[in-house]
């Protein structure tokens, strides 16, 4: 990606496909992700969305916050629904449109993983964007497969989550699809370029996993959404990368950190109430995991 022309704030389009006045929480990371991704996708796009915070952001009948056609679908079926949209577009001679599934971490890595795995295995011509806010936020912050270890949620209320975060993008990458990328709400330009790239790679399944801070679910002031998202990346906890036809490379801020010092992960933990019961042992364990992961990264 580093060799390609990168979008800058000045070159980024000011056309908005997401309308203001929607029902997302104040300071919602998804707002940044959704708004930016839609800019990259453009108006020739059809969306498939399962129940999630995005359903609420998108608006309640009869008003929609998005200037795109969208089919709302059941929780477990997002990737299959996107498949169906693509099939219909092919059958009706409108195959040039982007078909985009947009789902949360639960709808992607937990209840929705069967349909997603099926679509990836079949190589469906769809873009799947997962906004990962690391818990079931729309139902009030219950643990999900992608909730990190030690995090307090309403279903891990005392001890915090006992298991590590499920590595969903690696699972998807194991399907051998053409494009897998991670991104962060705190780096919208990197996200924009990845969505653009995904859209340009028409023909197969493309997957983008976006780290998406949630002020109410993570327990931080709304003004810190971007700051915390950046800390997630600069600590090396959540890495920005792409896997293009099997070739892995770090991108953006993560690429810049190779061989350099990273922010200690504890600084990230301290900013959020959800980590308040983290023991020193778990902090040490997490820092150790990050360090050994980064030991394998080369410039």
């Amino acid at each position: 990606m580093d060799n390609e022309k990168k979008t800058t704030i000045l070159s980024l389009t000011d056309e908005e496909i997401m309308n203001p006045g929607n029902r997302a929480c104040s300071g919602c990371g998804l707002g940044i992700v959704y708004r930016t991704a839609l800019k990259a996708l453009g108006k020739d796009t059809v969306l498939a969305v399962p129940p999630s915070c995005l359903t609420v952001l998108q608006g309640l009948y009869p008003v929609a916050s998005t200037k795109l056609p969208c089919v709302n679908v059941t929780f477990a079926s997002t990737a299959a629904a996107a498949t169906g949209v693509r099939a219909a577009l092919r059958a009706t001679g409108r195959d040039h449109l982007n078909v985009v599934a947009f789902a949360g971490d639960g709808g992607t890595g937990d209840i929705g993983i069967q349909a997603l795995s099926g679509a990836c295995e079949r190589g469906e011509d769809i873009i799947y964007i997962c906004y990962d806010n690391e818990a079931y936020m729309n139902t009030g912050v219950q643990r999900s497969g992608t909730t990190p270890k030690g995090v307090m949620t309403t279903t891990t209320p005392i001890k915090g989550k006992l298991q590590h975060k499920k590595d969903v993008p690696s699972i998807i990458a194991a399907h051998g699809i053409d494009y897998v990328a991670t991104a962060s709400a705190a780096y919208p330009l990197d996200l924009y370029d990845k969505v653009k790239k995904a859209a340009s790679m028409k023909g197969g399944t493309r997957y983008i996993h976006v780290h998406t801070p949630c002020p109410s679910g993570w327990g931080f002031p709304t003004r810190n959404t971007v700051k915390i998202g950046k800390l997630g990346v600069t600590t090396g906890l959540f890495d920005l990368y792409e896997i293009v036809k099997g070739e892995f490379s770090l991108t953006g801020e993560s690429a810049k950190r190779v061989g350099k010092e990273r922010t200690p992960v504890t600084e990230y933990f301290q900013t959020q109430r959800r980590f308040s019961s983290l023991s020193d042992a778990v902090i040490e364990e997490m820092q150790g995991m990050i360090d050994s992961k980064w030991a394998n990264y080369t410039a």
Binding site: V73, A81, T83, A87, A88, R90
Partner: peptide
């Protein structure tokens, strides 16, 4: 026609729901 060998019946109907919403006889 488009024939989608889905991974479950749940997805079979999901495909039909979406393709029908997109305007194809399903």
């Amino acid at each position: 026609a488009e024939y989608i060998p889905v991974e479950s019946e749940h997805s079979a109907m999901a495909v039909c729901i979406a393709s029908s919403t997109a305007g194809a006889r399903s």
